[in-house]
């Protein structure tokens, strides 16, 4: 018997890893690192760049004008996130539970229809809802009229009190398909024997959902929550498509994404400031990082998992 060969170096591992590593480094890691670096610089009117330490952060939090805008955007963003958590995810779970009922017919049709808005461009979604809710051309006021609730109609997208909630609900409408599909897949993965055994033991359908299915899909709900969190604190497109970079009325729909855009790229006569923009972007990164870490180290560790 010969001694075992040393295995030849497995070059294919590098070959297979390379594309993702290169693309990810080039388009994600490097820009992120450069943004962090940029936030410590500033430029004078001739465009000469100099290192200023934490001055940009001091401006962002110390200057009342900057800080009030930042905290306004932060609070709005949190409301935006809270509405998604309170509306989108429960509805998603409910739809998934309904879809997984064995007695349901035309299941694939419903699934496709419910998922359809997620596939639409956010510009189209914004445009459609602007038209539906428009006080001039929209159908919502005539529908409300038809059922005798005409006086309830208001130009929701134009009022400071309701614009943010309305936009959040539009976003919920668009993305509800994602939690629905993830939960649906998790529900399908629960073995039938488990449910059958519960039936044999005389458990009601209601109890089966709350006591058996829900604990089993909790990890998926956790994943959805963190996806929603990251998605919402990165959100920008819907607000920009509907309200523009000034996120009116009176900045009531301003979230961190639109605040970043305004700062970085400028707005009308205001020129963009890429150094303050990088500062805002870094803060967004830190906020998201904090949220994800909280989830990973506090919530996920305590979550109970069951071997199926």
């Amino acid at each position: 018997m010969s001694t075992p060969h040393r295995r030849p170096f497995r070059f294919h591992i590098i070959v297979f890893l390379a594309p993702a590593t290169i693309v990810y480094t080039l388009f994600m890691i490097w820009p992120l690192a450069d943004t962090l670096r940029l936030s410590f610089f500033d430029a004078d009117s001739a465009g000469v760049r100099s290192f200023v330490g934490t001055e940009n952060y001091e401006t962002l939090f110390g200057d009342e004008r900057w800080s009030s805008q930042f905290w306004n955007a932060f609070v709005n963003n949190f409301i935006f996130f809270a509405i998604h958590m309170a509306v989108q995810n429960p509805i998603g779970i409910m739809l998934a539970a309904l879809l997984s009922m064995p007695a349901l017919r035309l299941r694939n049709t419903y699934r496709t229809m419910l998922f359809m808005p997620t596939l639409l461009s956010v510009v189209i979604v914004g445009f459609i809802w602007q038209l539906i809710l428009s006080p001039i051309w929209g159908v919502s006021s005539s529908i409300l009229d038809a059922i005798g609730l005409g006086s309830w109609f208001a130009p929701w997208l134009g009022l400071e009190s309701s614009a943010l909630v309305t936009l959040s609900l539009i976003s919920v409408w668009q993305y509800v398909g994602i939690p629905m599909l993830l939960i649906y897949a998790a529900l399908l993965a629960i073995p039938d024997e488990l449910i059958d055994a519960a039936h044999v033991d005389g458990t009601s359908g209601w109890n089966i959902f709350w006591k058996i299915k829900l604990p089993l899909i909790l990890p998926t709900i956790g994943v959805i929550s963190i996806l929603t969190f990251v998605g919402n604190f990165n959100a920008f497109d819907l607000i920009y498509a509907v309200k523009g970079a000034l996120a009116g009325p009176n900045f009531s729909t301003d979230i961190l994404g639109t605040f970043l855009y305004r700062t970085f790229f400028g707005q009308q006569l205001q020129l963009g400031d890429r150094y303050m923009g990088a500062t805002v972007a870094t803060m967004m990164f830190l906020i998201i990082l904090t949220g994800v870490c909280l989830y990973l180290f506090v919530i996920q560790r305590r979550m109970q998992r069951y071997e199926l």
């Binding site: 004008r65 134009g158 400071e160 000034l246 009116g248 009325p249 009176n250 900045f251 707005q267 009308q268 006569l269 205001q270 400031d273």
Partner: peptide, 22 residues
């Protein structure tokens, strides 16, 4: 409109607010 806050940008906002009555 050279500085921050930008007078012209602010004029947009406050003019709309005045008409909206806020």
């Amino acid at each position: 409109s050279r500085g921050t806050p930008n007078l012209w940008n602010e004029m947009w906002g406050v003019s709309a607010n005045v008409i909206n009555g806020t």
